[in-house]
Nucleic acid binder design. Structure first.
Lengths: 219, 219
DNA sequence: GGTATTCGTCAGCAATCGGTAAGGTGGCGG
DNA sequence: CCGCCACCTTACCGATTGCTGACGAATACC
């Protein structure tokens, strides 16, 4: 597995990286937010171990960036004990788990292993809905074997719907998932995205459950 | 939804309760830890909004009590800005989220809604009544395996009935649950909805208990 | 640095909801 | 057997909710 460690304390970064390498992973290190973003853009990681307090910015912006680009890379956040608020925001922004610094290296390794295991099983190959096939690993959608280009937000919506096809997802849920918590969207942004998705994929793919939200059409 | 507001500042308690009632919840107020514990023992709440600083004790004991009794009632904690340690302890004791006092009423409402949503979707499962199956997570009802489309109000009524199938629910209870508390529905709105429900689901599903209210039909 | 996407917002339209009311039905006491 | 009262059913219409095309700002890409 290929991992990225984002940590400005050099000694800690090296120690963590070494521990992960002994466990058989390929590990890159970034000491600044800039470096991390460059690295993430250049390569696809299987997991990111992220310190929130960085010299040139808040680590959470990296998480939001990833999620806005619809990247599902798991993120494990490391934070000092007094930054509990950041921890919570981190989980809401789409992090997968957190560690309290200073952390035990073996515990870190255990968390990493747990997340990778989880991610692997949810990565699931491919999802079929009538004429639509969704390939999460490649973030590609096919309509009758013809590839369809989706924007990041469109993908995020379809991904969330198709992950639990039996569940109705409310617009409020989408807003919590696509944007932060405090950031209120005053309008019908979700409706607009759904409309665009339907234009690309056909009418039957996403069903409206009036008064509740949206759900995958039954194929 | 039935909520409990635990807060010794009378004005704030009333303001919060009023705001929640406007959102359609039934709200009780407790001004002391004692009252809160009595209330929790007497009734089952869907969520508790808890001030930690109370005249007769620490609000955390309430959280611990709940968790010790394996009650999963979600708890939203409110604390002053400088009580960070309490917040941390609160989250570790099993609270679901926290608010910094003084808080904006609308933000409070948003947090409450988010927690209720989370709790509701995790409650999941599925309820069977003869030819009817109710899937709360998808907000869908099946009649002989054919999906039936219900409006939000219809769903609310069926949901409330099916949650406690052995209980007869009075029309006043429905009005409390579907509208605010001091709601004046001058007409037969509930009867009309029940009628429309029966038209969609069949006659046997909802029984009339003349003079008292309605109850799920025994399948 | 210019161009193309993307995304949030808005407005107008369409569909559906839901409270109300009015007339009908049936159970129950007398 | 009668009348009353609780409940049922249906139509109506204002209010709400959702859909879609257009527009402009922000952003990414070359």
């Amino acid at each position: 597995m290929r991992l990225l460690v984002v940590e400005d304390e050099h000694a800690l970064a090296e120690a963590a990286a070494e521990h992960l390498r002994e466990a058989g992973h390929a590990v890159d290190i970034a000491v600044k937010l800039d470096d991390a973003q460059a690295a993430v853009r250049a390569t696809s990681y299987d997991l990111i171990l992220l310190d929130l307090q960085l010299p040139d910015g808040d680590g959470l912006t990296l998480v939001r960036d990833l999620r806005n680009r619809a990247a599902s890379t798991p993120v494990l956040i490391a934070t000092a004990r007094d930054q509990i608020m950041q921890r919570i925001q981190g989980l809401e922004a789409g992090a997968d788990d957190y560690l309290v610094k200073p952390y035990d290296l073996d515990e870190m390794l255990a968390r990493v292993a747990a997340i990778l295991r989880r991610a692997d099983s949810s990565r699931a190959s491919q999802r079929q809905f009538g004429p639509i096939s969704i390939v999460p690993s490649a973030q590609v959608v096919y309509l009758n074997d013809a590839p369809v280009r989706l924007t990041p937000k469109e993908w995020a919506i379809l991904d969330r719907l198709s992950r639990r096809p039996d569940i109705t997802v409310s617009k409020a849920d989408f807003e919590d998932a696509l944007y932060g918590f405090g950031s209120e969207v005053e309008s019908n942004a979700i409706e607009a995205h759904v409309s665009r998705l339907r234009a690309k994929l056909g009418r039957g793919v996403i069903e409206t459950v009036r008064g509740f939200g949206y759900r995958m059409g039954k194929g």
